[in-house]
Design a protein around this nucleic acid. Structure first.
Lengths: 138, 138
DNA sequence: TCAATAAAGTTGTATATACAACTTAGTGTA
DNA sequence: TACACTAAGTTGTATATACAACTTTATTGA
């Protein structure tokens, strides 16, 4: 049986495939650094946003983080269970004092993760990432 | 309470955060196009690899796709359940005839997804992605 | 004000992913 | 060959993520 499409296409070009791989490699580096704190990169991203902006609801958070509302809702649930985030002023989501302390504590280790990935990316890799962000974050 | 680290850091720089967002946006586009075929982008990546290389074991597949061995094992399991992949020549993993037919059928739609994402990325976005791949894939 | 509609938030379900621990298969050396 | 060791593969468990369907909250028009 012949497969004309298969014979002529080049799967290595796949942009989704590349993006998934890059994401896994990056996540592996950050996960390693965050492990001692019992928090994930995705959760840390939310804490980071909430550290700087204290009047967001779930819709706004999901827009900022490009997370589907149900995904966001569940990620928040875990942070609430850990008492790092509070829904007590619903619908506004706020980081707790405990959350702020954790973020403040993690930052030095986050900077180590950043240094590790930056060493791999070098300056042109870092600006390549910004190029992609500018293209896709319309 | 004061948080020196929080006051001075810039969470928007976070490379992991950027990568996760880019990955979600890209995945959203591909998922939309692949939906009619009942297959995911991650599964399609595996079929793509197996379409071109027919003598790989799980270890080799996990290296190529940058997937932890247990993740790979489970992704394969789903493909085996769908009879798109076969483990009958263990430990070698092979795509089945059904799998090849599906890939051949999907390729035109995959090309549409590629066109959509390429239109957003433009040529400098596309080369930015390659820059990142070159940096991280050692 | 109240009913209709829209928006935001929640829950069910499925795949994706990784780490840890375990089992099976393979290798090498005495 | 047999035993020890290593590599590959599998399973348990937890988080991440999205879509669909549902509930709750907010908005708007009569």
């Amino acid at each position: 049986m012949e497969f004309k499409n298969i014979d002529s296409f080049n799967p290595k070009e796949c942009i989704s495939g590349k993006m998934m791989r890059l994401n896994r490699m990056t996540a592996n580096i950050f996960r390693k650094h965050l492990k001692p704190f019992g928090i994930t990169d995705s959760q840390l991203t939310l804490l980071f946003v909430l550290t700087k902006r204290n009047n967001l609801n779930q819709k706004e958070l999901s827009d900022i983080t490009v997370l589907e509302k149900s995904s966001l809702n569940r990620n928040l649930k875990r942070l609430i269970d850990s008492e790092l985030v509070s829904k007590s002023s619903f619908p506004i989501i706020r980081i707790t004092e405990k959350g702020k302390i954790l973020v403040n504590t993690i930052i030095p280790e986050w900077e180590k993760a950043m240094a590790e990935i930056k060493a791999l990316l070098e300056s042109d890799g870092i600006s390549a990432l910004d190029t992609l962000m500018n293209k896709l974050m319309n």
